[in-house]
Structures are given as structure tokens and as C-alpha cells.
Amino acid sequence: MQKITRDQLITKAVELLSNGTVSAVLGWQKGEFDYDITPAVFTTEEEIKNNFVYNDFCGANFSKYLVAKTKKLEGKILVFLKPCDTYSFNQLLTEHRFDREKVYAVAIGCEGMADVVKLKNKVDGIISIDYKDDAMYVDTLYDGTVKVDYADVLAERCINCKSKKCVAYDELMGEDGEVIDSARFDEVARLEAMTPDERFAFWQNELSRCIRCNACRDACPACTCEKCVFDNPNSGVENKAPANSFEEQMFHIIRAYHVAGRCTDCGECSRVCPQNIPLHLLNRKFIKDINECYGEYQAGAEVGSRAPLVDYTEGDLEPGEVFERGDNNA
């Protein structure tokens, strides 16, 4: 359960809106179901009071929305950022994707968000959810009220949270945390230990489920190109729906390369994937390799940092060493 409450956020939003600091608020509202939360832009106090929600399913990373919203709006927009979102926020600033002057950022401490899929695997027929201190109480169609521990539905990205530190904000609500020495690369290490055939089979199995809905790309704060290569007939790699398994793998490999060194490991891609493909493993492989080859680097930790893949230093690995390293893993 989150320590910061819906009421606190509403008070903050209303305050900033009414004193003219911001002209719009980026927040959450209920979707079709109780667990199905969607991002929304609020411009009046009334809307906020009626529709603004905040609970353990408010996992969406808002930073990417700023790219489009700041271009359209007069005045500033208020954005609420979880610690992991603040990294994406910085990364977007590094890439000059929005105007910092047009944003009022409130960072909010985070206790870890819940994973809808995990919940749905536990209980059927969810009607509504009551968030109590000790657990969620889920009102269901078939089994009455079911008690679900928060820990049992905690999202993978939150179990392996890399940092509870907020690296960018105008204002902080709740407590700032620390960078965490998480176990997020353990699963990558397990894949690395496989034989190439095993690894191929693993990814074949995962990626063959992809339906090319493009949700991963659309949610990714690193994917903000004015014209994505997959939508561009001149790019040579344009494809909207894969014709065969090779193309569908190419999509993921190209995407992983495009975000390499820029992905902050926010976990949005895996969260939004309707097919539950563990896309974070591709990105974490890149992050792990970068850390090992060029020294620890966290995209978005600060604005303007020079990512190792687009920077040259005299101590850089020689291409031959990278090649040999690949071989050893094979």
C-alpha cells in the first residue's frame, strides 16, 4: 500500500492549479475496472475531486506524456513521478525532448506497485478493491471478499527495484529513498549461462507470442522519435505486423538496440505487454553489458550525462575484446 494517499495528491494538485503554478495536471483516473487505471489530464478542480485516483495500480510512467503535452499547453503542467519515473524524466531532458520550464514535477515516494496479472491469476471476477493497511481486500463475483497480501502481487520491476531515490523534482512528497543494490541482473545471468541453442529457444518461445500491438514501443519513454523507424517506409525496416518469426525477432532486436544506453529500466515495456513478454530482460542484458564493459552507468541518473555507447574515452574496450567476450558467452 502507498504511504502517500489520494487525498494528499488531490490537495497538492488543487493547490497548484488554483494558485496558478500550473494550468493542467497529469494524473490517473479509473478505467473500466477498478484495477484498470488510465492516465488523464485534468484542468479543473472539479474534475480532480471527482475523478482523480491513486492506488497500487497507478504504475504508469508519466514522463513520456510530457513530450506531447508540453508542446500543446499554455503554462505549466503538473506531473507526479515515482522514483523510477524520475530517471526517465532526466533521460528525456538529456535528449531535449521537452521543455523543463513547462513542467512542475512532484516526486512521490513509492512502496512498489501491484501487478494486475498477478492479481488476476490469484482471484477471479474482481469487482472492486479496498486498499487496507495490512492487505488488499478484493470483492469478487464468485468468492466474496478475498484478502490478498501486497507482497504477493508486487510487480517484478518493483521486487527488483533499482532505486527509491528521486533524481528530479521541483517538490518532493513523502520520503526520498536510496539507490538499491537489487538482484535485477540475476535473471540475465541465468540466460547468459545457457547454451546459444537454449537461449534461442527461450526467446523464440517468448517472442513468438508477440502480436505487434506496439504497446511496448508506445509506452517506452525512450521511444519518442518524431517518426519511428517501424512506421517509416524509407527506413528499410518498416513493418507494422510481422510476416514471419524472423521479422518479429528483428523488431525486438532493433528496438533493444535503439534504447540501448538510453533505457532507464523503468519496466513500462514489460508492464504494458498484453502477452507478458519479459522485454525487460533484453534491456537489462544491454545495461549489464554496458556496466561490465564501460563501468557502471545508469541512464537518467543525471541530466546531460554522456552515455558510454555514444561517448569515446581512451580507456574504452577495443572492438576485439567485445568480440571475444561474445564468444566466451557462446
Binding site: E95, R97, C225, E226, K227, A307
Partner: peptide, 21 residues
């Protein structure tokens, strides 16, 4: 220009400082 994001990736790698915004 129609496709450029202004992201500075190119400027960071250009060894000759040829790119401006």
C-alpha cells in the same frame, strides 16, 4: 528535419563537432 528528434545523440558522437541545433 521532419524526422529529427533534436535528441543530441549525433552531436555527442560527432568527432569533428560538425553538428549544431
Amino acid at each position: 528535419e521532419m524526422m529529427c528528434n533534436g535528441c543530441s545523440s549525433c552531436e555527442r558522437v560527432c568527432p569533428y563537432g560538425a553538428i549544431t541545433y
